[in-house]
Computed example of a mutant assay.
Amino acid sequence: MTTEQVIFNNVSFRYAEDQPWVLKNVNFSIKQDEWVAILGHNGSGKSTIAKLMNGLLFPDEGEIYVHGIKVTPDTVWDVREKVGMVFQNPDNQFVGTTVRDDVAFGLENRGIDRNIMIKRIEESLLSVRMTDYLLHEPHRLSGGQKQRVAIAGVLAIQPNLIILDEATAMLDPRGRKEIMTTVNDLRRETKVNLVSITHDLNEITGADRVIVMNDGEVWLETVPRELFKQETALRQIGLDVPFTAKLANRLQTDFEFSQQPLTQKELLDQLWTFHSNK
């Protein structure tokens, strides 16, 4: 039995016949329990990939499989049973007058039994630390709280795959860090697949693998540690590495790191070890 939960096979897409290709012969796969970050500058095709995974768009050429199901107009609702998507602006996802009603919406659409529904609402809000806001109006919440509720709504339907499509773009740095920490913790607990679409390399340090898009094509597939060594090449395609990686790259002439530091703690630990051994 294959462990590949998402497969893009020679996928090309454009929004109209007289427009340029947004994606050109894209190939990649995502394995079970894997967190894959898809990076790229604006217009690189990364958000189009997210919409194709969820059946919001369909490829002009090639094939897409999600959890063993080929994505077509005939199978789109089966695919969406497997996929939960969190968008950049959570306000666009809210339909309920309270947090509880909003999380319940997807469950009601699936005809989930009321007792099961109540349990899932409680569990999903507990997972994102929003149980105290059960009866709050969503539009009165902060940006980070709104995204937590949006994530809870996705978790409640128990998808096999969660897609974060620039889901932290409207948050401040602290809010971004909290959301990514929450989602990564949930991924470990629930074994759900995670795909994060972003242009912010600070968000990908915990990812298992990174796919970098450039002008509609896969520019590079690698892991975060190796990616952060590509500072000059990334800058040429409109991306920038985190400060910690920049500092580590500058220090490479004086220090021999055992591995590329991903966090400030890793950088400091390696510098301390280097000095201690002198």
Rank of each mutant, 00 (worst) to 15 (best):
L57R: 04
F58M: 00
P59K: 10
D60N: 15
D60L: 13
I64F: 03
Y65E: 02
Y65L: 07
H67D: 11
I69Q: 11
I69Y: 02
V71Q: 07
T72K: 03
P73F: 04
P73C: 01
D74H: 03
T75E: 02
W77H: 10
W77L: 02
V79E: 06
V79F: 04
E81I: 06
E81S: 13
K82S: 14
V83A: 08
V83H: 05
G84V: 15
V86K: 09
F87G: 05
F87W: 14
Q88T: 14
Q88Y: 08
Q88F: 04
N89R: 09
P90Q: 05
N92Q: 13
F94T: 07
T98L: 13
R100E: 15
R100L: 07
D102S: 08
D102A: 10
D102N: 09
G106E: 11
G106C: 10
L107T: 08
E108Y: 00
N109T: 04
R110P: 02
G111I: 07
G111T: 08
I112N: 00
D113Y: 03
D113G: 01
D113T: 00
R114A: 10
R114N: 05
R114H: 06
N115H: 07
N115A: 08
I116R: 06
I118S: 06
I118R: 08
K119C: 00
K119F: 01
R120I: 03
R120P: 00
I121H: 02
I121D: 12
I121Y: 05
E122L: 03
E123F: 06
L125F: 14
L125V: 10
L125G: 11
S127M: 14
S127W: 01
S127D: 14
V128K: 08
T131Q: 12
D132W: 11
Y133F: 15
L135F: 15
E137H: 15
E137K: 15
H139S: 13
H139K: 09
R140K: 10
L141M: 15
S142V: 08
G144L: 13
G144S: 12
K146L: 03
Q147F: 11
R148V: 11
R148D: 07
R148H: 11
R148P: 12
R148A: 13
R148T: 11
V149M: 10
V149G: 09
V149E: 09
V149T: 07
A152G: 13
G153Y: 06
V154E: 08
L155M: 15
I157Y: 00
Q158E: 15
N160G: 12
N160I: 01
I162L: 12
